[in-house]
Simulated scan of single mutants.
Amino acid sequence: MDQRILVTGARRGIGAALAIGLARPGVTLLLHHFGAAEQTEGVARLCRVLGAQTRTLDADLGDPAAVGELAGEAGAVDVLINNAARASNVPIDQLSIDEWLATFAVNVTASMLLAQTLGAGMAGRGWGRIINVVSPTVLLGGPSGPAYVSSKAALIGLTRSLARALGPRGVTVNALSPGAIRTEGEDELEESDRAAGRGRTDLVATQAVPRELIPEDLVATVRLLASDGSGALTGQVLEVGGGLVFR
Score class of each variant (00 low, 15 high):
12 R>P: 03
26 G>N: 11
108 V>D: 02
139 L>V: 14
211 R>W: 11
165 A>N: 09
125 R>T: 12
175 A>R: 03
10 A>H: 04
56 T>F: 09
216 E>G: 07
103 T>I: 06
186 E>P: 02
7 V>R: 02
228 D>Y: 12
230 S>A: 15
70 L>F: 04
29 L>I: 09
130 I>Q: 11
118 L>K: 03
87 A>C: 07
195 A>R: 14
237 V>R: 05
46 L>T: 14
79 V>Q: 00
152 K>M: 04
18 L>G: 03
157 G>V: 05
197 G>P: 10
137 T>E: 14
220 A>R: 13
171 V>T: 11
45 R>S: 10
16 A>F: 06
112 M>R: 15
112 M>V: 14
129 R>I: 01
75 G>Q: 03
59 A>T: 06
96 S>R: 10
40 T>L: 08
219 V>K: 13
185 G>C: 05
241 G>Y: 03
204 V>H: 05
214 I>R: 13
104 F>A: 04
58 D>C: 15
208 A>H: 06
137 T>Y: 01
101 L>N: 14
156 I>V: 13
75 G>T: 07
101 L>H: 14
135 S>T: 14
180 A>T: 02
53 Q>H: 08
81 I>F: 06
27 V>L: 07
136 P>V: 13
55 R>I: 12
2 D>A: 13
35 G>A: 08
224 L>Y: 15
184 E>Y: 06
210 P>H: 12
102 A>E: 13
121 G>V: 05
21 G>N: 13
164 R>I: 09
75 G>N: 03
237 V>D: 03
122 M>A: 05
83 N>H: 02
84 A>E: 00
1 M>S: 10
222 V>L: 15
144 S>G: 10
131 I>R: 15
54 T>L: 11
19 A>H: 02
206 T>R: 13
191 E>R: 15
54 T>S: 11
240 V>C: 08
45 R>Y: 06
218 L>S: 12
172 T>I: 11
242 G>C: 05
231 G>L: 09
51 G>A: 08
30 L>C: 12
27 V>T: 15
95 L>M: 15
157 G>F: 15
231 G>P: 01
199 G>I: 06
99 E>L: 09
34 F>R: 00
245 V>K: 02
199 G>Y: 02
179 G>Q: 02
67 V>R: 00
92 I>K: 08
209 V>P: 00
211 R>Q: 10
142 G>I: 12
26 G>C: 10
105 A>S: 15
80 L>K: 09
108 V>F: 10
34 F>G: 01
228 D>N: 12
135 S>K: 02
172 T>H: 03
180 A>L: 03
24 R>S: 10
219 V>Y: 09
195 A>D: 10
2 D>P: 15
